[in-house]
C-alpha cells in the first residue's frame, strides 16, 4: 500500500480539481434563463465579430518552435537521472553528460545561426 500513500494526494487532486471548474458551469446551467436568439448565439472574439474561418492554417514556424521545445524537453528527461546520480558518478560519466549537453548546445547554436529562433 506504499504506492497509495505516495500518490493519494495526487489522486485526490485529480478527482477534486475537475470539480472546481465544472461546478460553476453546472450551477450556471441550472439557474440561467434560456432565451437564445440569433445575435446571442453568434460567434464573437473579444466582443468583436470574427473575420473569416476560425480553423485557419497555422504557420510552419509554430512547428519549428514546438520541435525545438521537444528536443530540449527530451534533453531534460535524460539529464534528470544524470543529475540524480551526480554524486556517485565517475569522471567518465561526468564527461559523457557534458558531451550530451554540448551536442545539443550545438543544435541550439545552429538554430540561432540560421535565424530559426526569430519570428518572421
Amino acid at each position: 500500500m506504499n504506492v497509495l500513500n505516495e500518490w493519494a494526494f495526487i489522486g485526490m487532486f485529480a478527482v477534486l480539481a475537475p470539480i472546481f471548474p465544472a461546478l460553476p458551469i453546472v450551477i450556471a446551467w441550472l439557474f440561467r434563463p434560456r432565451k437564445p436568439n440569433v445575435l446571442k448565439s453568434s460567434t464573437y472574439e473579444c466582443g468583436v465579430e470574427t473575420i473569416g474561418d476560425t480553423w485557419v492554417q497555422f504557420r510552419v514556424q509554430y512547428y519549428i518552435y514546438g520541435l525545438i521545445f521537444l528536443v530540449f524537453d527530451v534533453e531534460m528527461v535524460f539529464l534528470f537521472p544524470w543529475a540524480a546520480a551526480y554524486n556517485e558518478m565517475s569522471l567518465f560519466g561526468f564527461v559523457a553528460g557534458f558531451l550530451f549537453i554540448f551536442l545539443l548546445t550545438d543544435a541550439l547554436f545552429y538554430a540561432w545561426q540560421k535565424n530559426a529562433l526569430e519570428w518572421k
Binding site: 520541435l67 525545438i68 528536443v71 535524460f78 551536442l103 545539443l104 545552429y110 540560421k114
Partner: peptide, 15 residues
C-alpha cells in the same frame, strides 16, 4: 550519446 546526436539531427533537419 546517440540520443543526443539523434535530437541534434532532428532539430537541424526540421530547421
Amino acid at each position: 550519446l546517440l540520443a543526443s546526436v539523434l535530437l541534434t539531427g532532428a532539430m537541424i533537419g526540421a530547421i
